[in-house]
Nucleic acid binder design. Structure first.
Length: 350
DNA sequence: GTGGTCC
DNA sequence: TCGTCTGTCTCAAGACCAC
DNA sequence: TGAGACGGACGAA
């Protein structure tokens, strides 16, 4: 879900949101939240109204998608790192619960739908990516020689940590809260063919908006994030204005005790701070999420195990042999080309 | 370039 | 009237290949 | 699921 309206707010400053070409990322290491990617792939394939299913009745859409996508990234010279979710933090419980309910509703509506269009619409909304499917993706990715990081909690914050510690150049995601977690860089629409690729640097945001990192976190909390409720009557304009005026949510709320300011803001917009407004915990979570220490992580891109990929995809999951062989040939070329370039630049910058 | 197909 | 917030609606979300 | 477009609501100037 990310940060509400952050993208919209940032558009008001020039050069904060930068347009990029895919070639700009050649030779760069990019962290990717796998679950978002898999969701996108499975939903897109559901356009036709069905999943890809093998003779055992197992869904295989995710594997085909990850296989193709990984090859195409390597062909473009990108070194992907796939990050898997662990156990979600308690702070996210309410959001996860509402998502589950939404899916349940969608499933029901799908059954009740009386035309094909509605059926597909709700079919897509009721997508669930299972642990088993993610494990299968992990196996395939590792056979392809791509590093995998298993986050203790959220993949988001783990991706941000990898970027913060310089293990990757940036994070490819649509989720703006990667910046709130302190990633120096977000790359949006990296694998989109229709939308422009954009890059947003945290440092540029702080400089242009004249905020420090803690103030930026407070701004994101005011705008609205996954972990905290919002204050009614405060949208993107007032959120930025308040942080500039008071410096922090803390100071703003304390100032509300001073009668003149309290009066001013109550008269202005009737905004009242919610009773259980846990902005402190939220800020703390953005600053110190539970992540794996980068010192324990050794990212290595190794030669794919071509035979095992063939065995995995064809024998185990029933994919068409010649199609997979074609993919493997592309993979081999991409790997060799990356390997060659990599040798020329022994200490290339991530 | 587009629509059908991938399993 | 203007600015701002908010709710509602809509759309599209992969990759390859044959034609 | 999200993000953009759009119109309505509401207070300020």
């Amino acid at each position: 879900m990310g940060i509400k309206n952050l993208h919209k707010l940032l558009r008001k400053w020039e050069n904060v949101i930068q347009e990029r070409n895919i070639q700009d990322f050649a030779g760069k290491k990019i962290a990717i939240d796998i679950s978002i990617l898999v969701y996108q792939i499975v939903i897109a394939i559901r356009n036709t109204g069905t999943d890809l299913v093998n003779t055992n009745g197992d869904i295989t859409s995710h594997l085909l998608g990850i296989f193709n996508k990984t090859i195409s990234m390597l062909e473009k010279g990108i070194y992907p790192v796939y990050v898997f979710d662990g156990k979600p933090p308690n702070m996210k419980n309410s959001i996860l619960k509402s998502r589950r309910e939404q899916r349940k509703k969608a499933k029901l509506k799908m059954k009740q739908a009386d035309n094909k269009e509605d059926k597909i619409k709700y079919f897509k909304r009721s997508v669930v990516v299972t642990k088993k499917q993610l494990n299968e993706c992990s196996q395939l990715i590792q056979l392809m020689g791509i590093p995998v990081v298993n986050a203790p909690q959220e993949a988001d914050s783990q991706c941000a940590q990898l970027a913060k510690d310089g293990l990757v150049y940036g994070v490819s995601t649509e989720d703006m809260d990667i910046l709130t977690f302190g990633s120096p860089r977000i790359i949006r629409n990296l694998s989109s063919k229709k939308k422009e690729i954009i890059q947003i640097d945290l440092e540029k945001i702080l400089k242009k908006l004249e905020l420090n990192y803690l103030q930026f976190i407070d701004l994101c909390i005011l705008l609205g994030c996954d972990y905290c409720t919002t204050i009614p009557g405060i949208g993107m304009k007032k959120a930025y204005q308040l942080i500039k005026q008071f410096g922090s949510i803390e100071t703003f709320i304390e100032s509300l005790n001073e009668t003149d300011i309290k009066k001013e803001y109550e008269n202005l917009n009737k905004s009242l701070v919610p009773e259980n407004y846990n902005y402190r915990n939220t800020s703390n979570y953005f600053q110190n999420p539970i992540v794996k220490d980068s010192k324990q992580i050794n990212l290595q891109w190794t030669e794919p195990d071509y035979d095992k990929i063939l065995e995995f995809m064809v024998s185990q999951f029933g994919f068409n042999k010649s199609k997979i062989q074609k993919g493997i040939a592309r993979l081999r070329r991409a790997y060799n080309s990356l390997n060659k370039n990599n040798k020329q630049i022994p200490h290339y910058i991530c």
